[in-house]
Design a protein around this nucleic acid. Structure first.
Lengths: 186, 186
DNA sequence: TTTTCCATGTAACTCGTTACATGATTTC
DNA sequence: GAAATCATGTAACGAGTTACATGGAAAA
């Protein structure tokens, strides 16, 4: 079972690999540049960083600039580099179960009235296309390792989803999927 | 923000729509037939059902067969039917953010040694193809509403993922994606 | 002068899972 | 006689999010 947790550790290690940073900085970067890749929140990042410090994956050095709040600048340790190497490989190799949200309402399409189903599917399609435009038009990060690559994958998946919904809509319109509405309670 | 929670309510309502059932029965059905669509666990189902009863979406009737443990047979109420109608439509219309797991290691592909990356990608591809075969060969549920439809969507998405990984592997092999391994720490 | 930015951290809460308790009964 | 099945439920735990506390500095 691999989950988001390991990926978050990997993400932090990777960010510290390119340069030593403090928590605030890391969180800003994630919010500003990686919104399409990770949803990790500030509190989680801070907590993970100090846990990783306890595990020896990173080490912190206090630093004060002017009289701004003291900041803890984290650097990756050799153990961290080693773990990143291992995780990078093993997580990449591991096929992940994509159980996309939104499967349940699909199961029950046939319980909807035809016009209702068609309207809902049209809305869904429009929404997916908006997401696609958003991703396709997202600012590029050519210098920041493979963010663009990761986004490219999301685009590929989204396109497949769009095409799938389009074909279902078509089938519903042409009566290929019989909709009977809600049957009376047994 | 729609999440898995609403979908679970919808799932339970839908299951009770086709027939009144008790918790154990529902859980068995999910485990045996809906493993590809929902991962909801027993304890969650039981808790949700009693919460839904408190909300008036379902009602329970105690029933004892022989001297087996008494079971609580749930039936959907008119309020439940109404909610299901609403949720079915709104959740279907709502585009969901697919933030597939596995994006982070992709970001860091370029930090791997070429042979390592290629090996990992090959493993990943093989794993995805295994998942695909598994889904494509999954037992059909022609009588159980749209399970097959939902699985069809997963297949479409998985195929896109497979193709994407295949093309990345190709690009890595041909040097289209430069891999430099881990840079020395700054 | 009030708001926003910097910077870290804690506390409360939500949601779901695992594991356990119970007790009779059929199966091995 | 031990183990799995039926049937429901509770308790403990884990992971992550929201919201808050703090306090100086810069910006509106």
């Amino acid at each position: 079972m691999i989950d988001r947790h390991d990926e978050r550790v990997l993400l932090l290690l990777g960010l510290l690999m390119s340069q030593s940073q403090h928590g605030y900085q890391i969180n800003e970067f994630i919010e500003n540049n990686l919104g399409n890749v990770s949803l990790m929140k500030k509190a989680t990042a801070y907590a993970l960083l100090s846990r990783m410090e306890a595990e020896g994956l990173v080490e912190a050095e206090a630093e004060r600039e002017g009289n701004r709040p003291t900041r803890r600048v984290y650097s990756i340790t050799p153990e961290g580099v080693e773990l990143m190497r291992e995780m990078g490989e093993s997580l990449l190799a591991q096929p992940v179960t994509i159980l996309p949200p939104g499967e349940i309402p699909i199961m029950y399409i046939s319980a909807l009235e035809p016009e209702v189903a068609i309207r809902a599917l049209e809305t869904r399609l429009a929404g997916i296309e908006a997401q696609l435009r958003d991703l396709e038009g997202a600012p590029k990060h050519p210098n920041v390792f493979g963010v663009d690559l990761a986004i490219d994958r999301r685009i590929a998946i989204l396109r497949a989803d769009r095409d799938w919904f389009a074909s279902v809509l078509e089938r519903v319109r042409s009566g290929g999927i019989p909709l009977q509405g809600m049957p009376a309670k047994a």
